[in-house]
Amino acid sequence: MNLAISEPLPPNDPMHLSRPVLCQDDRAPWIGQKATGPHRATGVVHRVYSTPFGVQVALLETYNRGLSLQVTELLSTATLPATHRTAYLRNYRTLLNMPVPELGTSARRTAAWHRRAKLYTHYDFALKYVEAALLEHVQAGDELVYRLGTRMVVLDPDLDRDRLFGWRRRMRVRATSEHQDTVRRWGWTDGEDDLFLRHDGLGPLPTLGLL
């Protein structure tokens, strides 16, 4: 996967996702702080990454010894208020109550749904961008961890790639010994699976030597 930027792209262009680059902000005020995100999810911020979508993404250690990603605008700490969380959650609840447009839906209702859906598309893009960049550096033998702490060792990091964006889409993994029982309940045979990478910020993510 070519991570080099060869020509400029406008902000919010989804094709940024085809070549994600890790841009770590070591001066971000979030680093080292206990932060709370949407739905009361909490964790300690280890790193913050800038993205071409106008927002930054924090890498948090959860209280289950896992890792997750979240847009910093949705986080709050004792000294830093969340700047967009209330509006984001209000819009999210509104979308849940709006039927997804189908054939025959009026143009007005369809436009209203799409307008709501696009309000925070850049948040989703930013999470996918950082997750894809982190996973691009994974090698065989590295460990991945989910938000709730389930860990696994990578056997084959290049099992499958997305045809459009080129990012890693599936990896062959084996659960670590202490998490074999967990993945058996997921239906994994012999504790191994061809893991589908959702790119939603919830993992699994590389441990990066942080855990």
Rank of each mutant, 00 (worst) to 15 (best):
Y92I: 02
P29G: 01
I31F: 01
T42E: 15
R184N: 15
T176W: 04
L3R: 09
P157F: 03
D26V: 03
T42W: 05
R93D: 15
F125C: 06
G141N: 09
K34A: 07
L148G: 00
V130S: 04
M152L: 03
C23T: 10
L67Y: 05
L9H: 05
G149D: 06
L159E: 13
T121H: 11
L17E: 11
A175L: 07
A133C: 12
G209R: 02
R47Y: 06
Y120W: 15
Q24R: 13
S106I: 04
F125T: 08
V44M: 08
L134D: 06
D162V: 00
R163S: 11
D190H: 09
L89E: 15
G209V: 03
P204Q: 01
R93W: 14
T72N: 09
L134Q: 03
L22V: 04
H114Q: 14
D162Q: 09
L17M: 07
Q33H: 12
C23E: 14
E192V: 06
H179A: 04
M171G: 05
G54I: 11
T51V: 07
L135T: 09
L148W: 03
R147Q: 07
R93V: 11
T79P: 12
L80M: 14
Q70N: 13
R93I: 05
R109Y: 09
P11A: 01
Y88R: 13
T182Q: 13
N97M: 06
D156E: 15
H137D: 14
P29A: 02
Q139R: 11
G203Q: 03
L9F: 06
W186Y: 14
L155E: 15
R147I: 00
R184V: 09
F165D: 08
Y92A: 13
Y63N: 14
D13I: 00
Q56N: 13
E143G: 02
L9A: 01
D142I: 02
H39E: 15
R185P: 10
F165Y: 14
R151D: 02
G66P: 03
G149V: 02
L134N: 04
N97W: 03
L59K: 02
E73W: 07
N12W: 02
A175V: 08
N64L: 00
N2P: 13
Y49A: 03
D142G: 05
T150Y: 02
A4F: 10
G43C: 05
E102D: 10
A87V: 10
T176L: 14
G141P: 10
S106W: 07
D156H: 07
T94A: 14
